[in-house]
Deep mutational scan, measured.
Amino acid sequence: CHSECLGNCSQPDDPTKCVACRNFYLDGRCVETCPPPYYHFQDWRCVNFSFCQDLHHKCKNSRRQGCHQYVIHNNKCIPECPSGYTMNSSNLLCTPCLGPCPKVCHLLEGEKTIDSVTSAQELRGCTVINGSLIINIRGGNNLAAELEANLGLIEEISGYLKIRRSYALVSLSFFRKLRLIRGETLEIGNYSFYALDNQNLRQLWDWSKHNLTITQGKLFFHYNPKLCLSEIHKMEEVSGTKGRQERNDIALKTNGDQASCENELLKFSYIRTSFDKILLRWEPYWPPDFRDLLGFMLFYKEAPYQNVTEFDGQDACGSNSWTVVDIDPPLRSNDPKSQNHPGWLMRGLKPWTQYAIFVKTLVTFSDERRTYGAKSDIIYVQTDATNPSVPLDPISVSNSSSQIILKWKPPSDPNGNITHYLVFWERQAEDSELFELDYCLKGLKLPSRTWSPPFESEDSQKHNQSEYEDSAGECCSCPKTDSQILKELEESSFRKTFEDYLHNVVFVPRKT
């Protein structure tokens, strides 16, 4: 048989008469490798580009789960590009990614509803959504962080984005990388972005840091009482949809009607710091009717980097990364020049730590249904340095008659930039024990000054392991946590139920 035959053949030295091919099969003959313009397919066939392209389009058009959109890589027609490569849609070739590779997620039936953290986790790592997304989240724990972890990498949506009755959302900033909504599939009414009845939605994105392009379709905003109209108009300008909307697409009466839409800028007039305090004062603000001013709200939190936005980490279910302080308005003076500047002394802060701070007014709604208010920009203030805590785990070892090696770990709280350490030492008198000992005694162990690591005695271990207080009263049991108490109650309830079950099964009433 021919060298490319495997198993047997019907005619000697003829690659077209093989029972099976050793390498690849091409047009009725066995070959060692697939010549151009053919590609290896499933490690035994040679196919042309049209064959591989037909497989790709067949799966793409069917949208069946589990099928493969075949691509070409290293002269092979394979189910998908290997790690580190992405497909070129024009020629199906796998090309190296520039940075992290995109991950295209194809949605069944063309859309997916995100109504819980669990459903959001199914899209973790996706960068391109081939379909439409509907966000409908009523509640949950730590929602802002969970949504950002699972949806934060999405850069492109081919269909539309719909935010509907998501009472738990305060902001859409968890879509931190969303840059493009194509609108290839539109919501009824030709809408590519749809926001309806979101009672706590206050911000779409921080438009000073976020760009969003909507290729096709219109915007729809109705019944978002805490979303200011200025935020919607800003989205029109940034996304390129200005002029597409009709009169009733953006409701003037049901958007922002319960919001404090600040239209003035508060400026800080005085800032002073110490290692654990920050004193702030800002310019006074009074609405047209000074009785509408209820006070100020001061927001602050630790910020290692200057990239904080107002609604980071917030949701309507209680999660809030900001510390909020309510401040009463100052006494009002008739003389504008003698107006008191409101302020606040922030206490209990960490030394040498940068804080993000902003302040906003708290006002009631005027009778004319106009909203007044003022808010400052987010500023960054760093507390002063102070003395560091003591170095940890000092170790001293003498390696000769004239040297001592000293080692330690950095302090747990540096409280500033540590530039150097101060080492103090003092000579001590020799131990009298060394002169009084009889060095001729056998088995004498000389006193040693070398360091030995501390260890816990058996008594201390027994005390720590004991669940009861000892007789001397030195140790006591740790208080039980809520989960331990709940577990004990469940076990007790189970024992009672099981005992009742045994009584009912074992003891049967005697027939009379």
Rank of each mutant, 00 (worst) to 15 (best):
residue 301 K to T: 09
residue 174 F to T: 05
residue 191 Y to R: 13
residue 161 L to M: 07
residue 115 D to R: 04
residue 173 S to R: 06
residue 125 G to Y: 08
residue 267 K to Q: 12
residue 215 T to P: 07
residue 169 L to G: 02
residue 373 G to C: 03
residue 157 I to H: 00
residue 270 Y to V: 00
residue 144 A to W: 01
residue 315 D to M: 07
residue 121 Q to V: 05
residue 384 D to N: 02
residue 312 D to A: 03
residue 263 N to F: 02
residue 186 L to W: 11
residue 301 K to Q: 05
residue 246 E to Y: 13
residue 318 G to R: 09
residue 369 R to P: 06
residue 220 F to K: 14
residue 378 I to V: 02
residue 138 R to A: 13
residue 166 S to E: 02
residue 368 E to I: 09
residue 332 R to Y: 05
residue 179 R to K: 13
residue 234 K to I: 10
residue 357 I to G: 01
residue 209 K to I: 14
residue 193 F to N: 01
residue 286 W to G: 08
residue 277 K to C: 15
residue 325 V to P: 00
residue 149 A to F: 15
residue 208 S to M: 07
residue 204 L to N: 04
residue 354 Q to L: 13
residue 141 N to A: 15
residue 340 N to P: 07
residue 372 Y to R: 15
residue 161 L to I: 13
residue 155 E to T: 04
residue 372 Y to L: 12
residue 173 S to P: 02
residue 169 L to C: 15
residue 331 L to I: 10
residue 190 N to C: 13
residue 128 V to H: 13
residue 229 L to G: 03
residue 203 Q to Y: 14
residue 178 L to F: 03
residue 392 L to K: 03
residue 220 F to V: 08
residue 188 I to H: 12
residue 287 P to M: 10
residue 322 W to G: 03
residue 294 L to M: 12
residue 133 L to W: 00
residue 291 R to N: 13
residue 167 Y to S: 02
residue 277 K to A: 12
residue 139 G to N: 12
residue 382 Q to M: 15
residue 306 Q to V: 11
residue 154 I to G: 00
residue 137 I to S: 01
residue 127 T to Q: 10
residue 158 S to Y: 10
residue 407 K to V: 13
residue 116 S to K: 15
residue 258 Q to Y: 15
residue 193 F to P: 01
residue 333 S to I: 04
residue 117 V to T: 02
residue 407 K to G: 06
residue 123 L to P: 01
residue 374 A to V: 06
residue 308 V to S: 11
residue 367 D to A: 03
residue 374 A to F: 03
residue 188 I to A: 07
residue 259 A to R: 06
residue 277 K to W: 00
residue 203 Q to I: 04
residue 184 E to R: 09
residue 155 E to A: 05
residue 266 L to G: 01
residue 108 L to F: 11
residue 233 H to P: 03
residue 398 S to Q: 14
residue 301 K to C: 02
residue 351 P to M: 02
residue 165 R to F: 15
residue 379 I to L: 10
residue 124 R to L: 10
residue 238 V to T: 05
residue 187 E to P: 12
residue 146 E to M: 02
residue 268 F to T: 02
residue 156 E to A: 06
residue 180 L to G: 07
residue 253 K to E: 11
residue 353 T to H: 13
residue 240 G to S: 09
residue 207 W to P: 04
residue 127 T to M: 09
residue 248 N to S: 12
residue 259 A to V: 12
residue 171 S to V: 02
residue 223 Y to R: 10
residue 113 T to R: 03
residue 273 T to M: 12
residue 274 S to N: 03
residue 151 L to Y: 01
residue 244 R to I: 08
residue 292 D to P: 10
residue 113 T to I: 06
residue 261 C to F: 04
residue 121 Q to H: 14
residue 232 I to L: 14
residue 181 I to A: 01
residue 380 Y to T: 15
residue 321 S to I: 06
residue 309 T to Q: 11
residue 119 S to A: 03
residue 284 P to F: 06
residue 322 W to A: 03
residue 268 F to D: 00
residue 131 G to N: 03
residue 362 L to A: 10
residue 333 S to Q: 14
residue 108 L to Q: 07
residue 141 N to L: 10
residue 403 Q to H: 13
residue 128 V to T: 09
residue 109 E to A: 07
residue 242 K to H: 03
residue 119 S to M: 14
residue 297 M to S: 13
residue 208 S to Q: 10
residue 211 N to H: 11
residue 256 G to R: 06
residue 329 P to T: 09
residue 114 I to F: 02
residue 237 E to C: 15
residue 240 G to L: 15
residue 294 L to F: 09
residue 105 C to Q: 01
residue 363 V to P: 09
residue 286 W to R: 10
residue 199 Q to P: 09
residue 196 L to C: 11
residue 305 Y to L: 13
residue 194 Y to V: 07
residue 286 W to S: 06
residue 142 N to L: 11
residue 103 K to S: 11
residue 255 N to G: 05
residue 203 Q to M: 08
residue 123 L to R: 01
residue 212 L to I: 08
residue 161 L to H: 00
residue 334 N to C: 03
residue 252 L to N: 12
residue 233 H to I: 13
residue 309 T to S: 15
residue 163 I to Q: 00
residue 243 G to R: 05
residue 332 R to W: 06
residue 371 T to S: 10
residue 211 N to M: 12
residue 209 K to C: 14
residue 119 S to C: 14
residue 195 A to H: 04
residue 333 S to D: 14
residue 106 H to L: 07
residue 180 L to R: 09
residue 152 G to T: 01
residue 134 I to D: 15
residue 170 V to C: 04
residue 107 L to P: 14
residue 329 P to A: 06
residue 229 L to Q: 13
residue 121 Q to T: 08
residue 235 M to P: 00
residue 401 S to M: 07
residue 164 R to C: 03
residue 386 T to W: 07
residue 221 F to C: 14
residue 388 P to Y: 01
residue 347 R to C: 10
residue 244 R to Y: 08
residue 292 D to W: 13
residue 283 E to M: 15
residue 315 D to G: 07
residue 330 P to T: 04
residue 350 K to D: 01
residue 181 I to F: 01
residue 298 L to D: 00
residue 107 L to Y: 08
residue 324 V to F: 06
residue 360 K to N: 15
residue 404 I to N: 01
residue 147 L to V: 03
residue 300 Y to W: 04
residue 314 Q to P: 02
residue 323 T to R: 04
residue 376 S to L: 00
residue 212 L to D: 01
residue 259 A to S: 10
residue 119 S to R: 04
residue 274 S to I: 02
residue 197 D to L: 15
residue 331 L to G: 15
residue 160 Y to T: 11
residue 217 G to L: 01
residue 338 S to E: 13
residue 108 L to R: 10
residue 306 Q to T: 12
residue 341 H to D: 11
residue 133 L to C: 01
residue 163 I to K: 03
residue 251 A to R: 06
residue 203 Q to L: 04
residue 245 Q to M: 12
residue 367 D to R: 02
residue 283 E to I: 03
residue 391 P to Q: 01
residue 267 K to W: 07
residue 332 R to K: 10
residue 405 I to A: 05
residue 261 C to Q: 03
residue 258 Q to M: 03
residue 198 N to P: 00
residue 187 E to M: 14
residue 180 L to E: 11
residue 114 I to N: 01
residue 278 I to S: 00
residue 114 I to V: 11
residue 349 L to S: 01
residue 201 L to C: 05
residue 173 S to F: 05
residue 392 L to Y: 14
residue 224 N to P: 00
residue 141 N to D: 07
residue 114 I to R: 00
residue 377 D to R: 11
residue 316 A to M: 07
residue 283 E to T: 13
residue 121 Q to A: 04
residue 147 L to E: 00
residue 239 S to D: 03
residue 260 S to F: 02
residue 251 A to Q: 08
residue 258 Q to P: 13
residue 254 T to M: 14
residue 351 P to W: 02
residue 202 R to K: 09
residue 103 K to W: 04
residue 393 D to T: 11
residue 237 E to A: 03
residue 302 E to C: 07
residue 190 N to E: 06
residue 282 W to R: 00
residue 150 N to V: 03
residue 206 D to L: 06
residue 207 W to E: 01
residue 402 S to H: 11
residue 336 P to L: 06
residue 359 V to Y: 03
residue 146 E to Y: 15
residue 274 S to Q: 07
residue 180 L to F: 13
residue 208 S to R: 07
residue 366 S to R: 13
residue 122 E to C: 09
residue 216 Q to I: 05
residue 211 N to V: 12
residue 261 C to Y: 04
residue 351 P to H: 06
residue 199 Q to I: 07
residue 396 S to W: 07
residue 273 T to H: 08
residue 307 N to K: 05
residue 372 Y to Q: 08
residue 346 M to H: 02
residue 244 R to G: 11
residue 301 K to E: 03
residue 167 Y to Q: 15
residue 131 G to M: 01
residue 173 S to K: 12
residue 307 N to S: 08
residue 132 S to M: 02
residue 207 W to V: 10
residue 368 E to M: 12
residue 109 E to L: 06
residue 117 V to G: 13
residue 130 N to L: 13
residue 216 Q to K: 00
residue 175 F to E: 00
residue 257 D to P: 03
residue 264 E to L: 06
residue 352 W to M: 10
residue 274 S to R: 10
residue 371 T to F: 03
residue 257 D to H: 08
residue 289 D to G: 03
residue 106 H to M: 11
residue 311 F to K: 08
residue 239 S to Y: 08
residue 119 S to G: 14
residue 158 S to E: 04
residue 156 E to L: 08
residue 212 L to E: 01
residue 184 E to S: 14
residue 229 L to D: 09
residue 199 Q to E: 15
